[in-house]
Design a protein around this nucleic acid. Structure first.
Lengths: 108, 108
DNA sequence: ACAATTAGTCAGAAAAATATGACCACTATA
DNA sequence: TATAGTGGTCATATTTTTCTGACTAATTGT
């Protein structure tokens, strides 16, 4: 009688945390655009005309909390706010590019 | 007068495709468990008691289509079906581990 | 014959994610 | 004074994702 390891509730699955911070409809585009230069809120909104303030606001906040983006307040009048990729965020984008390739290339 | 690149609708954002195939409530756990050995449907269901047949069935199918999992029918009676990580899937898990570390380690 | 196991599918309900439109404060321009 | 730009928040509505429970079909055990 062979019973296989079935007592394995992966509580706090680490991959879950990772993929959760990366999940969200507009985060891929934010990564992509931020990899091309600093972002500003209204500009981002115009570049993603299918999106909306609310969702972008939440996505930016989550990415900032995950330390993927750095938010900078530029002291001009009117105030300008810039979001740019952190080192972490940039490293993520680099890895994403590798993963894309992996996903696309057929399995030999 | 400096106008910044705003004519940049990232149609078919490549990162979007990647994160879409990785999205789904139970895929992280499937990656995790599959990295420990081949999976069978009902066993998976028992190991993830908060989940359900439907969602797992869909997730397995999507991961199989993305060539992350390989489905094998074992000709015994009753038929057994095994899901195991492909080379691609395994490589993904390895990269996930690196990304987790990146995400956790504070930005210096 | 009846229950349990294998691996699912299906329709409908519930929950979660996303979008809409109004509103806010501040500054600038006509 | 009114309009537009900066960068948002909030309550509500809509859409998408996930879950539930019933059902299938073949096989094994009691």
């Amino acid at each position: 009688m062979t019973t296989i390891n079935e007592n394995n509730p992966p509580e706090g699955c680490p991959i879950e945390g990772l993929l959760k911070t990366l999940s969200g409809k507009w985060k891929p585009q934010i990564f992509q655009l931020a990899s091309q230069g600093p972002l500003r809120f209204n500009s981002l909104l115009r570049q993603l005309p299918q999106s909306n303030k609310q969702s972008l606001s939440v996505a930016l906040k989550e990415m900032e909390e995950a330390e993927l983006l750095i938010k900078t307040v530029i002291q001009q009048k009117p105030l300008h706010i810039e979001y740019q990729l952190s080192a972490k965020g940039l490293a993520m984008v680099v890895v994403f590019r590798q993963l894309e390739d992996m996903l696309l290339h057929p399995l030999e």
